[in-house]
Amino acid sequence: MSRIGKLPIVIPDNVDVNWNDSEIVIKGKFGTLQTKIPETIGIQQDNSILKVSLKSEARNLRSLHGLYRTLINNMVIGVSEQFQLTLILKGVGYRAVVQGKELILNLGYSHPVKVNIPEPISVEVVQNTTINLKSCDKELLGLFASNIRAWRQPEPYKGKGILYKDEQIIRKAGKAGK
């Protein structure tokens, strides 16, 4: 049995959890999230504690136990507190601006890069080089951050690119001169 799957999920007071055999819907202060769950996953609720269990002990189904417990826990945390990621633009002339529903990035290309911002994500640009992303959906937030980062991966020689906050780039030595 999964060690992570056995852990209980504590539900805050301002979060509402509803489920049936195939879907779970979680509503909170920052939004509503829903996901499909397999029929082999069972959910029990006692007051403000949610427990995820397996209905059968088949080997291939046991791996889903911890996964769905973590997904449900991330949904509860997201609708009650929100997730936040910070990206830092590091390079000469790199900057970002939010215009309407688009994030416009100047990353050293001959043209500005325009990225559409998905609905549940809020974007804030601080001092032109720091991008703060907030959302209740952890999966969508990470995917959006990686799509932005894909425009300029950090490179090991000068350390330029789009970095996550507190990310350390291992620098390489350049060519050794004569």
Rank of each mutant, 00 (worst) to 15 (best):
residue 111 H to G: 00
residue 177 G to A: 07
residue 91 G to F: 04
residue 125 V to T: 12
residue 144 F to K: 01
residue 68 Y to S: 04
residue 48 S to Q: 15
residue 41 I to M: 06
residue 125 V to H: 02
residue 11 I to D: 00
residue 60 N to K: 11
residue 18 N to R: 14
residue 123 V to C: 11
residue 51 K to A: 03
residue 128 N to M: 02
residue 145 A to V: 14
residue 149 R to V: 04
residue 112 P to H: 12
residue 127 Q to V: 03
residue 100 G to L: 04
residue 134 K to E: 08
residue 99 Q to A: 09
residue 62 R to E: 14
residue 178 K to C: 05
residue 167 E to F: 09
residue 91 G to M: 03
residue 26 I to W: 01
residue 104 I to E: 11
residue 69 R to S: 11
residue 131 I to M: 10
residue 115 V to I: 15
residue 66 G to C: 07
residue 154 P to R: 03
residue 148 I to L: 07
residue 169 I to E: 12
residue 33 L to K: 05
residue 19 W to F: 15
residue 46 D to F: 14
residue 175 K to P: 08
residue 174 G to Y: 11
residue 59 R to P: 04
residue 139 E to H: 08
residue 104 I to W: 05
residue 51 K to L: 09
residue 77 I to S: 09
residue 73 N to R: 14
residue 34 Q to Y: 09
residue 24 I to H: 01
residue 39 E to A: 12
residue 109 Y to W: 09
residue 4 I to G: 00
residue 23 E to S: 13
residue 100 G to N: 12
residue 92 V to I: 08
residue 98 V to N: 04
residue 159 G to R: 07
residue 129 T to Q: 12
residue 70 T to M: 11
residue 69 R to E: 05
residue 2 S to Q: 13
residue 107 L to H: 07
residue 103 L to F: 09
residue 34 Q to M: 02
residue 172 K to W: 03
residue 10 V to S: 14
residue 155 E to I: 10
residue 93 G to T: 07
residue 133 L to M: 08
residue 105 L to A: 12
residue 153 Q to W: 12
residue 18 N to L: 07
residue 38 P to G: 06
residue 38 P to Y: 05
residue 110 S to N: 14
residue 8 P to T: 06
residue 178 K to W: 08
residue 5 G to I: 04
residue 143 L to W: 14
residue 65 H to I: 00
residue 94 Y to D: 04
residue 57 E to C: 02
residue 92 V to R: 10
residue 147 N to S: 15
residue 104 I to K: 13
residue 91 G to C: 01
residue 39 E to P: 05
residue 138 K to S: 13
residue 149 R to L: 04
residue 162 I to H: 04
residue 87 L to D: 10
residue 133 L to D: 02
residue 45 Q to C: 14
residue 39 E to G: 09
residue 164 Y to C: 06
residue 14 N to Q: 15
residue 29 K to Q: 14
residue 59 R to Y: 07
residue 89 L to V: 02
residue 42 G to K: 10
residue 44 Q to S: 13
residue 20 N to K: 11
residue 35 T to F: 00
residue 9 I to E: 05
residue 123 V to Q: 14
residue 54 L to R: 07
residue 76 V to P: 07
residue 44 Q to A: 08
residue 157 Y to V: 15
residue 105 L to M: 11
residue 29 K to H: 06
residue 54 L to W: 01
residue 139 E to I: 09
residue 69 R to Y: 05
residue 69 R to G: 00
residue 144 F to S: 02
residue 55 K to Y: 04
residue 2 S to A: 09
residue 21 D to R: 11
residue 134 K to P: 04
residue 6 K to V: 03
residue 167 E to R: 03
residue 9 I to M: 03
residue 162 I to M: 10
residue 143 L to P: 00
residue 104 I to F: 01
residue 175 K to E: 11
residue 141 L to E: 10
residue 96 A to F: 02
residue 33 L to H: 02
residue 30 F to M: 04
residue 160 K to E: 15
residue 113 V to E: 15
residue 26 I to A: 02
residue 128 N to T: 09
residue 92 V to G: 00
residue 15 V to S: 01
residue 110 S to K: 13
residue 127 Q to H: 08
residue 87 L to A: 08
residue 14 N to G: 03
residue 1 M to N: 05
